[in-house]
Amino acid sequence: MSIIIRLAGITKVYQVGDESVHALDGINLSVEKNEYVAIMGPSGSGKSTLMNIVGCLDTPTSGLYELNGTNVSEMNDNQLAKVRNKEIGFVFQTFNLLARSDILHNVELPLIYGGISSSERKHMAREAIARVGLSDRIHHKPNELSGGQRQRVAIARALVTKPSILLADEPTGNLDSKTGNDIMALFDTLHKEGNTIVLVTHEEDIAEHAHREIRLRDGKVERDEPVKNRRIVQASSNVGVA
C-alpha cells in the first residue's frame, strides 16, 4: 500500500504573550491509501492544529511533512494552494460554505481555481452533488438548507476534485446525532468507494466508524491502534447516497 501522508517530528508552537503553547509536540504518523482514520482526544489536545497542518492550511513550527512523497514543508504559497486544491478535500465543523453562492457554485469553486473548463466543471459538480444526495437542491443557497444538508454540500465540495485524501474536523460537531449518523454513513460509503479519510471527533461512537483510531493528548500521539468494535451503520433514512 502506498503512503499518502507521512509526518515526522511535527511540532507547532504558539507564542501567546511570553508563554509558548506546544499545540503539537513531536507527532510521527503515516496514513496509507484507503485508510479510514479517526483522530480522538480531549479538547485542546491539538487535533485541529494537526488537521490544519495536514490540510496545508497551516505550517508546522518544525518537522517533516510528506504528502504523496513530496515534501510539503518546502513548498511556496502557490504550490500549497495547488495542493489544497487538488490533493486535499477539507470538511469543516462549521461547513464554511460561501453564503451568497448557490450549491452548484460552492461545489464548482475548487474546480474554478483548478482551471477546469466551465462545461466539464458543471458536470463534475453535479456528479459530486448527486453523490451526497442533493441533486434537487442545486440552486439553493446554504441558508436554505438544514445543517446536515450543508455538511453534505461541504463534502461534495471536498470530493469534487477527486483529492488523495478527505480531511474532516469534527464534521458532525454541529449536527444532531441522527443527522450526524447520516453524515457518517456517507463517509463510510465514500471510504468503501476507495477514498482515504481522516476525521477528527471526540465522540466514541463516531470514531467507531473508522478502522484506525489515533488518540492525542497534549500534542502527542498517546495511542494509535485499529478500531475493535467497528460500527456498521445504515443511513437512518433514505438520504440518497447515490
Binding site: G55, L57, D77, N78, A81, K82, R84, N85, K86, F90, N96, L97, L98, L109, P110, Y113, G114, R157, T161
Partner: peptide, 14 residues
C-alpha cells in the same frame, strides 16, 4: 472568512 474559505479550497494569492 470568505477569503479564508477560498484559500482553503485552493485559491492562489493571484
Amino acid at each position: 472568512k470568505e477569503i479564508g474559505i477560498r484559500k482553503a479550497i485552493g485559491a492562489r494569492r493571484a
